[in-house]
């Protein structure tokens, strides 16, 4: 489509308009990313007084380090668990709300609220709910004969962080699923009803396939969220424990760099994380957006 373009005279206006964004990107992304890249090739001495160039040694060491490989698999479990839980719960809520007529807006508003809560606060909230000593959930589980303790059980801890991380993301996924559902013409559902499809069958043969663009988009967004945006949740609940059971890649970058003060290893890990983000973004734009249309 040919659109009419507005042009402004003057050479400085475009730079002035772009300036703030470029400066923010430079200071908060390009510079630290460059630092991380540079640091990942260095090793500091124990006192932080000198550092020397070690090439890719930080990387080769990481991949032979058992705790790093463990963190990789922990992250995979955590990301998949969080994505599945938050997306299926959100889809269920969206389908339910979409059937409402009058109360739809009220439910939508309420369901979106959790998204406005800071990750650390959400973490503390779940820390209270699941606290083995004072929490309501362990108390309830106790009654059915399950002793919940995420401080000693790696499985319990993983479940806790998955629930805490997923809960926040449900609001976001819900909005997208609801919008996706509302963009499906009602007449399609009616045609399928006349064509003899039960409500369940209509969902799986008509609605769900038509939601695939939304589903794939959310899948990438959720994986990225689970891998990179959940530091606060983990820090507030388990701090990566017990015994590294919830020590995801992002949390380990912090733990190794700022607690363990192994800056070289920490920087190498963040470089690997950056590569993963690049790959995921590439997948989203190149592969998914092109293939998932109907």
């Amino acid at each position: 489509m040919q659109t009419k373009r507005m042009t402004f005279p003057g050479r400085w206006l475009p730079y002035a308009l772009l300036g703030p964004q470029v400066i923010v990107t430079l200071i908060f992304f390009i510079w630290p990313a460059g630092q991380a890249l540079y640091q990942s090739l260095l090793r500091e001495d124990a006192f932080g007084l000198s550092s020397n160039f070690v090439g890719l040694a930080n990387f080769t060491r990481l991949f032979s380090d058992g705790s790093y490989l463990n963190s990789l698999s922990v992250t995979a479990v955590f990301a998949i668990g969080t994505t599945l839980l938050s997306m299926s719960a959100a889809l269920l809520l969206a389908v339910t709300v979409n059937r409402m007529l009058r109360s739809r807006n009220a439910y939508t508003t309420l369901l979106v609220w959790p998204y406005a809560i800071a990750p650390a606060i959400a973490g503390v909230l779940w820390w209270f709910i699941f606290n083995p000593a004072i929490g309501i959930v362990p108390y309830a589980l106790e009654m059915v004969g399950y002793r919940w303790n995420h401080r000693t059980s790696g499985g319990d801890a993983m479940l806790l962080v998955v629930i805490a991380a997923a809960w926040k993301q449900i609001a976001y996924n819900f909005l997208f699923f609801l919008a996706g559902l509302q963009s499906i013409p009602q007449s399609l559902i009616e045609a399928a009803a006349i064509d003899g499809a039960s409500p369940t069958k209509r969902f799986w043969t008509i609605v769900f396939p038509l939601l695939t663009p939304t589903t794939f988009f959310l899948m990438v967004v959720n994986i990225v969220y689970a891998m990179f945006d959940t530091f606060g949740v983990i820090h507030a609940t388990t701090q990566g424990g017990p015994a590294q059971a919830t020590n995801t890649l992002v949390y380990k970058v912090y733990a190794d760099g700022f607690v363990g003060l192994n800056l070289g290893a920490s920087a190498a890990q963040s470089v690997i994380l950056m590569v993963i983000v690049v790959v995921l973004t590439f997948v989203q734009f190149r592969f998914i957006e092109r293939r998932v249309n109907y």
Binding site: P185, S187, L188, E190, A192, I194, G196, A197, L210, Y294
Partner: peptide, 26 residues
């Protein structure tokens, strides 16, 4: 009964064949 809709209401993700066959399969 069978109904023809104003906007046709064809299933966009199915081929024409599957659009026709859907009601029979069900």
């Amino acid at each position: 009964i069978a109904m023809v809709f104003q906007n046709y209401a064809l299933y966009p993700h199915m081929t024409v064949y599957n659009n026709l066959a859907y009601g029979l399969k069900n």
